[in-house]
Every structure is written in structure tokens, then in C-alpha cells.
Computed example of a mutant assay.
Amino acid sequence: MHKELRVAAYAVCVRDGRLLMARWVAGDGTRRWTLPGGGMEHGEDPYDTVVREAEEETGYTVEPVALLGLDSVRRAYPRRLGTHADFHGL
């Protein structure tokens, strides 16, 4: 089974009672809303990841003030040629 690890950081940005969201296009072509954030680059600090990703996706510079949580998800899914992937997202 193919192993996949994705480490990502997302921002919860609130100002004046408003939440900052980013638009993305899902694999099926539908447009959806998500928190700004994304995958960590090798050797990158999570703090730097969330600052970089928020700016890339929204154009805003953010200043993290607290870690709100940590989530871990694991699932298997089919891949091409009849193989399967063991995905772990953190």
C-alpha cells in the first residue's frame, strides 16, 4: 500500500466579527469556501507555513497569536492500476 503524508497549516482569521475565507475549486469543478492555508514545505516551520499560505491565498499578511488545535485524519483510497493509498493528514 502506498503511504502518503500531508502536513498542513490553516488560519482562523477574525476581525471585527468577520471570518476570512478563501475560495477553491474542488476536483469535481465546484467552487467551495475554506480556511486560508495549505501544505507545509519540507523544513518549513508551521508558523511560517500559515503566514505564507494565508498571504498566497488571500493577499493579506496574518500574524498568528495562538495555536487553536491539531487534527489528525487517516483514510485509505483506491489509486490507479488497482493499488491503494494509506493517507495520513496532519
Rank of each mutant, 00 (worst) to 15 (best):
Y77W: 03
L19Q: 08
Y10H: 11
H88M: 09
H84L: 12
P78H: 00
L68E: 13
L90A: 03
A22Y: 06
A54W: 01
R79G: 10
L5N: 09
L67W: 04
E55S: 12
A11N: 02
F87R: 12
P36M: 01
A9C: 14
G59I: 07
D86H: 10
E57K: 11
L90W: 00
A26E: 13
L20T: 00
G43W: 13
T49S: 12
V62A: 01
Y47N: 06
L20W: 12
E44S: 08
A9S: 07
G29V: 07
A22G: 05
E53R: 15
Y47I: 06
L81R: 03
E63C: 06
V62F: 05
G82K: 01
A9W: 03
D71N: 12
M21P: 05
E57V: 05
D45T: 01
E55I: 12
P36G: 05
T30H: 14
V50M: 03
T58N: 14
E57C: 06
M21H: 07
Y60F: 08
A66C: 04
P64E: 10
T83H: 12
Y60T: 03
E63M: 10
E41I: 05
M40Q: 01
V51R: 12
A26L: 11
E63S: 03
R15W: 11
M21G: 05
R31T: 08
E56D: 04
S72V: 15
G82L: 02
D86L: 15
V73G: 14
R6I: 10
V65K: 06
G29E: 07
W24Y: 15
H84E: 07
L90I: 14
A8E: 12
R32Y: 07
G69R: 11
E44A: 02
G89Q: 04
W24D: 11
K3L: 02
D48L: 14
G69L: 15
D86A: 12
V12R: 02
D16T: 06
D45R: 03
H42S: 10
A22T: 06
M21V: 08
R75V: 04
A8C: 13
V51E: 04
G43Y: 07
V7W: 11
P36V: 01
R32N: 11
R23N: 07
